[in-house]
Computed example of a mutant assay.
Amino acid sequence: MKKIVALTLATSVAAGLFLSGCAMNETSSTSGSTGSNTSSGQREVNVCSWGEYIDTDLITQFEEETGIKVNYNTAPSNEELYSQLQTGGVNYDVIVPSDYMIARLIEEDWLQKLDYSKIPNYEKIGEQYKNLSFDPNNEYSVPYTWGTLGIIYNTTMVDEPITSWGAMFSDDYAGNVLLIDNSRDAFAMALYYLGYDVNTTDEAQIREAYELVADAKARGVYAGQGMDEIFQIMEGGNLAIATYYAGDFLTMYEANPDLAFVIPEEGSNWFVDSMCILKDAKNVDEAHEWINFIASTESNLKNMDFIWYASPNTEALEQYPAYYEETYGEPLDMDLYEIMAAPDSVLENCSMYENLPADTLALYNDLWIELGT
Results as ranks from 00 to 15, higher is better:
Asp366Gln: 14
Ile294Thr: 13
Pro321Arg: 02
Gln205Phe: 10
Gly35Arg: 03
Gly267Lys: 04
Ser164Ala: 09
Asp228Asn: 09
Gln42Met: 14
Glu107Gly: 11
Thr373Glu: 12
Cys48Ile: 13
Glu63Val: 08
Leu250Glu: 04
Ile263Tyr: 01
Ala214Leu: 13
Met275Phe: 14
Leu356Glu: 03
Ile369Arg: 10
Ala246Trp: 02
Pro357Arg: 10
Thr87Gly: 02
Asn71Thr: 07
Met234Asn: 05
Ser183Cys: 15
Ile180Val: 15
Asp115Thr: 02
Ser39Asn: 11
Thr251Trp: 01
Asp181Ser: 15
Asp135Glu: 08
Thr251His: 03
Ala209Lys: 02
Phe62Pro: 00
Trp290Phe: 15
Ala281Ser: 15
Thr145Cys: 10
Glu265Ser: 13
Glu63Gly: 14
Asn300Cys: 09
Ile95Glu: 02
Phe187Lys: 02
Tyr323Thr: 04
Asp280Lys: 14
Ala342Ile: 00
Gly67Phe: 04
Ile241Lys: 02
Met334Asp: 10
Ala15Met: 03
Ala341Lys: 01
Tyr245Cys: 04
Ile151Trp: 00
Asp273Pro: 05
Leu111Pro: 01
Leu363Met: 12
Thr87Ile: 07
Ile106Thr: 03
Asp115Arg: 04
Tyr153Pro: 01
Asp55His: 10
Gly236Tyr: 04
Thr360His: 03
Val177Thr: 12
Thr148Leu: 08
Tyr173Gln: 08
Ala255Asp: 14
Ile152Glu: 07
Asp99Met: 12
Glu266Asn: 08
Met340His: 05
Asp366Ile: 01
Tyr337Gln: 11
Glu298Asn: 11
Arg219Gly: 08
Phe134Asn: 03
Pro331Phe: 10
Glu64Phe: 04
Asp215Pro: 05
Val47Phe: 11
Ile241Pro: 00
Gln128Pro: 01
Tyr53Gln: 12
Val70Trp: 01
Leu194Lys: 10
Leu259Ala: 08
Ile233Pro: 01
Pro331Asn: 11
Leu356Cys: 05
Glu63Asp: 11
Trp50Ser: 14
Glu63Leu: 11
Tyr144Val: 04
Gly220Leu: 09
Asp333Ser: 07
Leu317Pro: 01
Asn303Ala: 12
Tyr82Lys: 12
Arg219His: 12
Ser77Asp: 05
Asn46Asp: 15
Ile241Gly: 03
Leu7Arg: 08
Gly226Asp: 01
Asn182Lys: 13
Leu278Glu: 09
Ala255Asn: 15
Asp159Gly: 04
Tyr364Met: 01
Ile59Trp: 01
Leu347Asp: 04
Leu114Arg: 00
Arg43Trp: 06
Gly175Lys: 00
